[in-house]
Amino acid sequence: MVPLYYIISAVLLGWHKLFTVLGLDPKGGLSWALSIIGLTLVIRAALIPLFVKQIKSSRNMQLLQPKVKELQKKYGHDRQKLAEETMKLYKDAGTNPFASCLPILLQMPIFFALFRLLSQAAKADKPHGFLTKEKAHEFGHAKIFGQLPIDGNFWASRTWGDTPHAGVMIVAAILVLAMTATTFTTQRQLMAKNMPAEAMSGPYAQQQKMLLYILPVAFGLGGIAFPIGVLLYWTTSNLWTMGQQFYVIRNNPAPGTPAFTAKQERDKAKAARHGHTATDTITEAAPEPEQRPSTRQQPKRQSRSQRRTGPANRATPPSKPDGQAKSQPAEGDTTNEQGDDK
């Protein structure tokens, strides 16, 4: 966790410094809460290449489902052979069934590092990474809007006497519901819009359907024990994932999916609004070239005397009476040509 402590604390302090310069109270909970949101944005931006890899892997897995079904029919009686052929199919296609889990798996250590950094700063003012003891105390005891402690959670909320802090419970419950809803919406969006019909059956589809309900419930049950600061991180991360996935599915959907059909309809409507169809666009963009003869006509070979004669005379030579026509000198006969010249 030590390297993660330094990374997280460096990003947190950087955002906290920025919000302090902008006029927020450095000891207030709002500046630290916004710093956690800024930390989330930095981490998710760094994970964009992995997200692209996840999208490609998920798309390849969907497109390979018909071939997987064929392997199941062929090797359904031999599980070991089926597993070997399936992994070979994935390898030949250049995809990895575990690549779709990479963004979540890489975020979990960061999630728990932030959880420990916040909880230990709140309980014992213990600094980690670049946090000093003073900054750790500010971070752990910060209160949002002057009332809601950033380290408070739904169950172990701070109390005023014997009465639980209702504000902490309400805010924590709202964040837990938001985290659960965004997780469910993200998974549902992927299955409903970016999966072909043939990929909605089979073991991979069954696994996705199970995760559709298991993950939100697991996060919801565990979220009631998370501090408000950690819930801010996770909810912001889910909102980023949902928006990023919506953009990818809308603009680059997998072929044969409802999202692909919707994109084609939008393209047709856009072309109709501009007053032309797809064929008109092609015709206007690439006009048909002029027809030219495929071969060039070569001029006829002429004798030296014909070349000396003007073009008009060659076009309409004078007619001569029969018997008086003078024979034309053959090409290369210099004697006759010199006589004529004289």
Rank of each mutant, 00 (worst) to 15 (best):
L82E: 02
Y90F: 14
G152V: 08
Q80V: 10
Q65V: 04
Q65N: 08
V52L: 12
K56M: 13
A113K: 02
A142W: 09
D78C: 11
G129I: 14
L106R: 06
Y75W: 04
K133P: 02
K126V: 12
K53Y: 14
G152W: 00
L106W: 11
S100C: 03
A122P: 12
L102I: 07
K74R: 03
L64T: 05
Q62L: 05
A93R: 07
L148G: 12
E70D: 13
N153A: 05
T86S: 06
G76W: 00
N96T: 09
W155N: 07
F130S: 05
Q54F: 02
N96F: 01
K81W: 01
S57G: 03
P109M: 13
A124N: 14
F98H: 04
P97F: 07
K69G: 14
N60E: 11
G140Q: 02
D125H: 09
M108W: 10
L114D: 08
K123R: 12
L117R: 05
A93Y: 11
R59L: 07
F112E: 03
V68T: 01
M61N: 02
F111A: 08
T95H: 01
L131K: 00
G140I: 04
K81M: 04
G76R: 07
A83D: 13
M87T: 09
K143G: 12
Q65W: 01
L148Q: 06
A136P: 05
G140P: 05
D125K: 01
A93V: 02
Q147C: 03
L71D: 02
A99P: 01
A122I: 11
I150F: 15
F112N: 02
L148R: 08
Y75S: 03
Q147V: 13
K74A: 05
K135A: 15
A121Y: 06
N60I: 01
H137W: 08
D78W: 13
T132L: 07
G129R: 12
D78R: 11
I144A: 00
I104T: 09
K56A: 15
L64E: 02
G146W: 06
A121I: 09
D92M: 10
S58H: 02
F145V: 00
G146N: 01
F130W: 06
K74G: 09
N153L: 03
S58V: 10
I48Q: 12
A142F: 11
E70L: 08
M108L: 15
A122F: 12
Q62V: 09
C101T: 00
R79N: 01
V68H: 05
Q72C: 02
P109E: 10
K143W: 10
L114R: 02
A124Q: 11
K73P: 08
H141M: 07
K88S: 08
N60D: 13
Q80L: 10
S119H: 13
E138Y: 09
A122Q: 14
L82I: 03
I55F: 15
A136Y: 03
L131N: 02
R79K: 04
G140R: 08
P109K: 11
Y75I: 11
G146V: 06
